[in-house]
Computed example of a mutant assay.
Amino acid sequence: MKKLFHLMIIAFIGVFFIYGLTNIILNLKGYNMADFLIAAVMLVFVALLELVLIKQYNRIYSLESIKAQKQIATDKEKAKFEIESKILGSKSRQQLIGADLCIKAKHMAGLPIAEGAEMFVYRCKGKVVFERNQDTIELGIDKVKDILIKTDVEIQKSYVSSAGGAVGGYVLFGPLGAMIGGRTKEKKSTNIEKYLIFSYEKDGDTAYISMEVTNEPNASLFNTNYYDLSKNERKLTSL
């Protein structure tokens, strides 16, 4: 729009210059010296103004200028991205990590993060990334055995029915199972708590990472339908 307006001004001044010059030529005999000087000065002024506008137009809209402006815009976007990508959970942060989904959860057990601390969990193609403050922890999907969404009621029932939550020498759902199962008689609230649980292989054993996701509906999108775990190495356990 600005470019078109600039061109219209150049064209208008150009027409005005041609009209003035033509008028002087056609009425040359009727002009006295004073009129001629005034008209000449005005035409020179108009001509100089036209040249200035043309040079300004070329400077602003030349190919080099356009490239320079695009580069400036690119640099600004890059600087903005670098700032925003440091903000945990932001779209820019997701893009930097390579995630297509991010949720906010409360850590329960399994990571070197305090119990109950809020954290961000990113869903990436070949990994799950956990972040809080300056800590970034990655879990490769090739190590993952299962991904579950369990309520505290389900965990308590499993804990009771499996003789104290012990299955094959391990506490079902890891430390989370012990915490939730151990408070079976203490729970008085009717609110249902939901937990996202990753079971994975660590040093030849099964380990668990768990977090509370009661108020995070997108937690269910972390599942075995998204992560194809069938390609992972199958482990045989004799009971």
Rank of each mutant, 00 (worst) to 15 (best):
K55W: 15
F36V: 00
Q134R: 05
D135E: 11
Q134V: 05
I83P: 01
I97R: 06
S62F: 06
I38T: 01
I72H: 09
Q56L: 05
M108A: 02
A117P: 03
V129H: 04
A117R: 02
Y61E: 05
L111I: 09
A79T: 13
I72S: 07
K125N: 08
V129L: 14
Y31E: 04
A34N: 06
L96I: 13
K55A: 15
T74M: 10
Q134D: 13
K106D: 10
L148S: 06
A34Y: 05
L28N: 01
A68Q: 07
K55Q: 15
S85R: 15
K78T: 09
G110N: 05
R59L: 05
K91W: 00
F130N: 03
D35Y: 04
L63P: 07
I38R: 04
K91A: 12
G126D: 15
I66C: 01
M42P: 01
L49Q: 12
I141M: 11
Q56G: 15
I137W: 03
H107W: 08
L28P: 01
E131S: 11
V144Y: 08
K70T: 13
V121P: 10
L101R: 08
A40N: 04
D100P: 02
V46W: 01
E131L: 11
A117M: 11
E82Q: 15
I147E: 02
A117D: 06
L96D: 09
D142P: 03
Y31A: 00
S62C: 04
Y122C: 04
L49F: 15
Y31L: 12
I38L: 10
K145C: 00
E77F: 09
R93F: 08
Q94G: 15
G98C: 09
K104M: 07
Y31V: 04
F36L: 13
E138N: 10
M33A: 11
T136W: 00
K78D: 09
L96C: 05
K70N: 15
Y57P: 14
N58I: 15
A114E: 10
R123V: 04
L148Q: 11
L88C: 02
I83W: 02
S92W: 00
I38Y: 06
C102S: 12
I66T: 12
L43E: 01
I83F: 12
V144F: 09
K55S: 13
D142L: 12
Q71F: 03
V121Q: 03
I54M: 15
K127A: 09
V144P: 08
L28A: 03
H107S: 14
Y61D: 09
G89W: 03
Q69W: 08
